[in-house]
Design a protein around this nucleic acid. Structure first.
Ligand SMILES: [Mn+2]
Ligand SMILES: [Mn+2]
Ligand SMILES: [Mn+2]
Ligand SMILES: [Mn+2]
Lengths: 216, 216
DNA sequence: CCTAACAATTAGGTATACCTAATAAAATAC
DNA sequence: GTATTTTATTAGGTATACCTAATTGTTAGG
């Protein structure tokens, strides 16, 4: 149980996130997400495996219990940092990702506690993702992508699975943020756009975009 | 003008602080302060000199204008972080140094601005040291060590030049914090202790301790 | 003036985390 | 079922920032 470096934390965090879309995570996907070359990732994954933080099979990389536990701690710090940035320092939701990605490796368990306390133990980050508690327990709401709704279905936005600032800015400009109610007016066929109604306005959304928005 | 690493920032910050007590800073003092071996520091100083961030003479190391400017930026981020920790997150002044020492390398110029703004552009850190402004201008009050006061002299504590948590806790327990008025009752001869009066109570302070407390 | 102590550097080496180029293995296409 | 593309790994190398041991230089005593 040697000390984890910021880089190890970053890899585990990425693996955790990616395994939500692809279970054993592939080296190439991980490399792409971390913006590193595949050989670099290959090598680091070997190291993570030797530390028993991941298991490495032909299919890809999976977190071990210990790896998952560290990943959740990092994610807790990331999401609490995001909340600090938006709720206390007045950042917009599209400005916080990179900042939080650095802060998450710099804040101590004490600071983590203080942030949580000062914010009244928030349950989610500004993008609607759950903040794991101290014991790594995290409440995942049952959600589906907005893109799966049919015409005249309604849903409440839970979270937005996206970190690109431009996209987040765009979504915010349409009012597509957590806790907002959306109604699907029309679904164009052949993978075409959705026409959605949000707080009185009507917008056309591409399928790709709609699939990032999770509703309940 | 290549990117500065956190380590370079840390060296420049240390050199800046140390040159307040010893003008050209010696390698050994710097090594001691950074808790590194002298050869490591020797080598890094060479690199700093090659980047023209310091000038390296026989007498020791001095910051160049550029080195000083970077150092002040780091110190601004350090002190703003300390204020964030105490004023917003409820830390005590003895708990903030190490935390701020990590945060200072993780916060962006935007976050720096937001912290300053959210706190109403504070002029000093919790220990009373001035926070340089965006342009590196910093208001140094004219102070002298408490240890130089004579019997019956009075002073207002401006700052405490100390980062050891134990010592800071001790000083806070006596009420020896910035903006407090202290009166020297007695100065024991032969480098002996000072008897000081703070908000109605009387304490004996060693010379060493008293010299860390700066008054006006 | 010489020498012990201290300060600084050189020499040689390690760990971490990246890279490109080349190769091997697997999946997909035709 | 072979050819092409994609994926993963090996091989070899770099930069950063640290270390210990040995050496050199400087200062201050005696
Ligand atoms: Mn991250
Ligand atoms: Mn988030
Ligand atoms: Mn620092
Ligand atoms: Mn301070």
């Amino acid at each position: 149980m040697e000390a984890d470096t910021p880089r190890i934390e970053e890899y585990l965090e990425s693996i955790y996130k990616l395994q939500q879309e692809q279970h054993p995570v592939s080296t190439s996907r991980l490399a792409e997400h971390l913006k590193l070359s595949p050989p670099s990732v290959s090598e680091m994954v070997k190291k993570l495996a030797s530390k028993e933080l991941v298991s490495h099979t032909e299919k890809g990389v999976c977190l071990t219990e210990e790896g998952k536990s560290i990943a959740k701690k990092v994610i807790r710090r990331h999401r609490l940092s995001e909340r600090l940035l938006t709720d206390i320092l007045g950042f917009k939701w599209d400005e916080v990702h990179d900042e939080a990605c650095r802060l998450e490796h710099a804040i101590s368990p004490e600071m983590e506690d203080r942030i949580a306390e000062s914010l009244g133990n928030p349950k989610t980050c500004p993008h609607g993702h759950p903040i794991p508690d101290k014991d790594g327990i995290l409440i995942k709401e049952k959600v589906k992508p907005l893109s799966e709704l049919k015409a005249s279905d309604k849903g409440i936005i839970v979270s937005v699975f996206e970190e690109d600032p431009k996209m987040l800015q765009y979504l915010a400009s349409l009012g597509l943020i957590p806790d907002v109610c959306v109604r699907v007016e029309e679904v164009a066929p052949f993978g075409g756009p959705l026409i959605v109604c949000v707080s009185g306005s009507r917008y056309a959304l591409g399928r790709e975009v709609a699939s990032m928005i999770k509703v309940k």
